[in-house]
């Protein structure tokens, strides 16, 4: 009985943890060889969280948001404001703050937008995100406008890190984030494999039938929307601390594009997709950034993925691994 579920859950969680462990182990060596690549790994770890949230909404609930930058912006500006106006530089508090603020904003917006699906949901999210983005400019006396909010180094467990050299400081950021990401991956895994998670998939597949087996589809979508927003908000707060600068760019539509692209690249509807997508995205990005026309490449990739490999890289890997196992079994 439970066997059936085991099969359905797959080895997702274990593969996630193995990959994270490998990255955590090789990170210091990579950083030692090239700090630039060490920082790229830092980005990779940070963005997994937002992509997990996006995948919950898109892959599991069927709601495609072209405005996820909205919540990254909320998270980042929450951290920025906490520092600028309250003098708080504790990264734990920044994260707590961003969880709260993104949940509140998501609740207010979600009450309306989860009533729509498909193009309507996608564009409403894009529009709302653009509204917030423009507010960060228009209220420059609060947000610092284009110059943004510069932040000091964060402190952790109440310990100031100002006196450390940059390498140690970055290592602390990296391992703290890896720790957080691990927990959040585990929580998300429980969510998607819970009764709630299966209900979301059912709503995604067939809204009408879901309603006629007695599921309150708007409520379920609202929960998913809020969880997704919280995950994006956390990444926002982390990004603010990683860059030590918050500008409206984090809330711009191209940031939403980045989330969409990286998740598709990794694989939607597949639990390990966001992890794979985040790392590969940032590796490609750091190569591609040398040409300025990164967005063009990203757009072309999105189209190619949708047409040629809708399951993303994770699906390709999974097929590959399964074929190896299969041939092994036949051989043995």
């Amino acid at each position: 009985m439970v066997e059936r579920l085991k099969k359905a859950f797959g080895d997702d969680l274990r593969s996630n943890f193995i990959l994270l462990a490998i990255i955590a182990v090789i990170y210091p060596a990579i950083y030692a060889i090239s700090p630039g690549w060490g920082i790229v790994l830092g980005h990779g770890i940070t963005w997994i969280i937002a992509l997990l949230g996006f995948n919950l909404l898109f892959g599991y609930t069927g709601l495609l948001s072209f405005g996820h930058a909205l919540f990254l912006g909320i998270g980042a500006y929450t951290a920025g404001f906490m520092y600028k106006y309250l003098g708080i530089n504790s990264i734990e508090l920044h994260i707590l703050g961003s969880i709260l603020s993104s949940a509140v904003v998501a609740l207010a917006i979600g009450l309306v937008v989860v009533r729509y699906t498909r193009i309507f949901f996608a564009i409403f999210m894009l529009a709302i995100a653009q509204v917030f983005w423009s507010l960060y400019y228009k209220f420059y006396w609060i947000t610092g406008g284009t110059d943004g909010i510069k932040m000091a180094r964060f402190s952790i467990l109440g310990i100031s890190l100002e006196h450390l050299d940059f390498t140690t400081y970055h290592h602390i950021y990296f391992y703290f984030t890896t720790f957080l990401t691990t927990i959040l991956i585990y929580l998300m895994w429980r969510i998607v494999n819970s009764p709630f998670g299966l209900t979301l998939k059912a709503i995604r597949d067939n809204e009408v039938r879901a309603k006629f087996i007695g599921i309150d589809i708007y409520k379920m979508r609202l929960y998913a929307f809020i969880i997704s927003a919280i995950y994006a908000g956390i990444t926002g707060a982390l990004v603010a601390n990683h860059h030590r600068l918050v500008t409206p760019d984090i809330a711009y539509w191209t940031t939403s594009g980045k989330v969409v692209f990286a998740t598709l690249l990794g694989g939607t509807r597949i639990f390990i997709g966001p992890l794979i997508g985040s790392f590969i995205f940032h590796v490609i990005e750091s190569f591609a950034m040398r040409f300025i026309y990164w967005q063009l490449i990203m757009g072309a990739f999105i189209i190619a993925i949708v047409i040629l490999m809708p399951g993303g890289i994770a699906q390709i890997l999974r097929t590959f691994v399964e074929s190896i196992r299969h041939s092994g079994r036949i051989g043995g």
Binding site: I119, G257, V260, Y293, Q295, G299, I303, V306, I307
Partner: peptide, 13 residues
């Protein structure tokens, strides 16, 4: 949605 969105990114660049 995704294909036309991809095209939008391309055109802007």
């Amino acid at each position: 949605l995704l294909v036309t969105y991809g095209l939008l990114l391309i055109f802007e660049d």
